[in-house]
Nucleic acid binder design. Structure first.
Length: 560
RNA sequence: CGGGGCGUAGCGCAGCCUGGUUAGCGCGCAAGCUUUGGGUGCUUGAGGUCCCCGGUUCGAAUCCGGGCGCCCCGACCA
């Protein structure tokens, strides 16, 4: 019997002083988690129940697509990571053992799982495989934050698929889409599957599962039939009123006006009627000019993807030497390739003259400078996709699915023999899911003034019984029986048998947020009923004493 | 990596600027009485390396130097 009088659920009246995010405040106050250090958290019993609920959902859905659960170590030899080329990652914890051997604390397990598969798989008959585990991940985060939302140590489900070829990988990927869609639905979360950046480490496709919430660290771009991470999103810009056409660019003095805003104000034009020029230097030291509308911003992730290489903004001295004074640079006359953002419509713009204190008006792309057109700007609220305005919402990434291809099978030698007897590389995918983030997202999405309101599937307990009677009272006797009956039916019940006032019990129950609260007091008992509060919405109803347990269970089954 | 802030009882805070009784308040905790459908009221009590080290001083929570830890904003996030 889970009696609150002897259960470790330390609730707090006030949130920790340093808490900012709602989930951080509430999960600490409700007694679910406690901080150990920066980005290091303990899960207290009720919190761990929540975590385990999510884990079980994920496990069932992974098993449903043929996943095989296993377990790989957190502590791994550095050599594996050197071979895969990931040893240099800054977030990777590195350490030595007593014999001075280099080790790492793994953040994912591609190296290990691929090594096992490479050693054991010989034939196309051994494929495909879906292997997964729940394991602690370690990441030396530059900035842990927001309670359990971004930590240095956390449990993650990571699965890895091994296929004969790209088609097989596509099948495995689609299986994960199905499994993840179901997981997120079963968790009771509001969520989006969005297009994501594939990053610099190869891979051909990636989606992220995002749960919108105020404390989210990512921005999701949404339109009917469209969902993407802001890092990769594309949209039509809002049109802007440009200057009239001129036969040739015309110099206009702009002394001291080195910002878009200053020039736009001086010429009484919208910022979008100007061209912003962003000089970059590629990995090989080549310079490029990125040109976009004055009211738009460069999306460095998109730019990096388009370029296919890393880059950095040019230094002021490089700009001065190759173009003109910073603040007055522009595409006209520039002796280097120009990348023009897709958001720049045809027409006449104002741009820097590459001379001190001067801009050019009437600059027309194509006529006045040659360019390559690419899409590299960050979309803005109000932009459109197929005529519909986009929304941008903060969200937390709770899962991601990623096509790795041969990124790891190549360096780690994961090959097999095909039907023709020739050696082939194994095609891989990797797929992560963070139960802690799913739980925190649920807190964020459904909390109200009184506290947490768990989706049924995640709640630490299904029902909390608040008994108002003293030991030995009629209320107690009934509460005890009700506890047994509900448990018999298969519900998880928390029994608040503490010797405290009713107010305190109600407040704690609503803070913890179990889907149903059953109040057993003299008043309602005398009327032949017990009161049930549905946590979400906080509406109260009554059920008759005679079949209270059945009615409560029926109510519970109907909850989200 | 850049910027800002904090560290005093389990939690939330005051005291520090301007050094000087026994370091204080609210909540919580313990005991007793009281109350019993929304944090009940009263009484009594326990609880402190004032983050650490060093310095200045007759005297340091308070001033100075160094360190550690934590939070927030931005950058970063394979």
């Amino acid at each position: 019997m889970t009696r609150l009088s002897s259960y470790f659920l330390p609730t707090e009246r006030e949130p920790p002083a340093d808490a900012e995010a709602l989930s951080h405040k509430l999960m600490v106050r409700a007694g679910l988690i406690r901080q150990v250090g920066a980005g290091l958290w303990s899960w207290l019993p009720a919190g761990w129940r929540v975590h385990q609920q999510v884990v079980q959902i994920v496990r069932e859905e992974m098993d449903a697509i043929g996943g095989q659960e296993m377990l790989m170590p957190v502590l791994q030899p550095a050599d594996l990571w050197r071979r895969s080329g990931r040893y240099a990652i800054e977030e990777l914890f590195k350490l030595k053992d007593r014999r001075d051997a280099d080790l790492v604390l793994a953040m994912t397990s591609e190296e290990v799982v691929t090594t096992h598969v490479a050693a054991a798989v010989r034939s196309y008959r051994d494929l495909p495989l879906i292997l997964y585990h729940f394991q602690t991940k370690e990441r030396d985060e530059p900035r842990p934050r927001a309670g359990v939302l971004r930590t240095r140590e956390f449990i993650m489900k990571d699965s890895y698929t091994f296929d004969r070829d790209a088609e097989g990988l596509e099948v495995a990927y689609q299986k994960h889409v199905v499994a993840y869609d179901r997981m997120l639905d079963r968790c009771g979360l509001e969520w989006y599957r969005v297009e994501a950046d594939v990053g610099m480490m190869g891979g051909s496709a990636a989606h992220e599962y995002m749960a919108p919430c105020p404390a989210g660290e990512n921005d999701v771009v949404l339109a009917p039939g469209y969902a993407a991470n802001l890092e990769v999103a594309s949209a039509e810009p809002q049109p802007v009123k440009l200057e009239p056409h001129r036969d040739a660019p015309e110099t206009v003095p702009t002394p001291g006006m080195t910002t878009i805003e200053a020039v736009a104000t001086e010429l009484n034009l919208p910022a979008g009627a100007l061209l912003k020029t962003f000089p970059i230097v590629l990995d090989g030291d080549e310079m490029r000019l990125v040109v976009l509308r004055g009211d738009h911003r460069v999306n460095e992730v998109k730019l990096r993807t388009v370029l296919g290489t890393d880059f950095r903004p040019a230094h002021p001295d490089e700009i001065g030497a190759r173009l003109g004074p910073p603040g007055y640079i522009g595409p006209v006359g520039a002796q280097m390739p120009i990348l023009l953002d897709a958001g720049v419509a045809d027409g006449a713009y104002v741009a820097g003259a590459n001379e001190p204190d001067a801009h050019l008006r009437g600059v027309e792309p194509g006529r006045d400078f040659r360019y390559e057109r690419i899409d590299i700007r960050t979309v803005l609220t109000g932009d459109t996709i197929n005529g519909s305005a986009i929304r941008i919402e903060p969200a937390i990434e709770v899962g991601n699915i990623f096509k790795l291809g041969t990124r790891y099978s190549l360096p780690l030698g994961a090959r097999y023999l095909d039907e023709a007897g020739s050696e082939q590389l194994i095609w891989m995918g990797c797929y992560g899911f963070g139960p802690a983030r799913a739980a925190a997202a649920a807190v964020e999405q459904y909390a109200d003034e009184a506290g947490i309101s768990w989706p049924r599937s995640m709640a630490p307990f299904d029902v909390e019984i608040v008994t108002l009677g003293k030991e030995g009272s009629e209320e107690r006797g009934f509460s005890d029986r009700l506890y047994s009956e509900l448990t018999e039916i298969g519900l998880d019940v928390l029994y608040d048998d503490r010797d405290s006032g009713p107010g305190e019990k109600f407040i704690d129950a609503e803070l913890l947020g179990c889907p149903l609260r059953v109040t057993v007091g003299r008043r309602t008992l005398g009327a032949g009923e017990v009161e049930v509060q549905i946590r979400r919405g906080r509406e109260k109803t009554s059920v008759l004493l005679d079949d209270a347990a059945e009615e409560i269970a029926a109510l519970w089954r109907g909850l989200p």
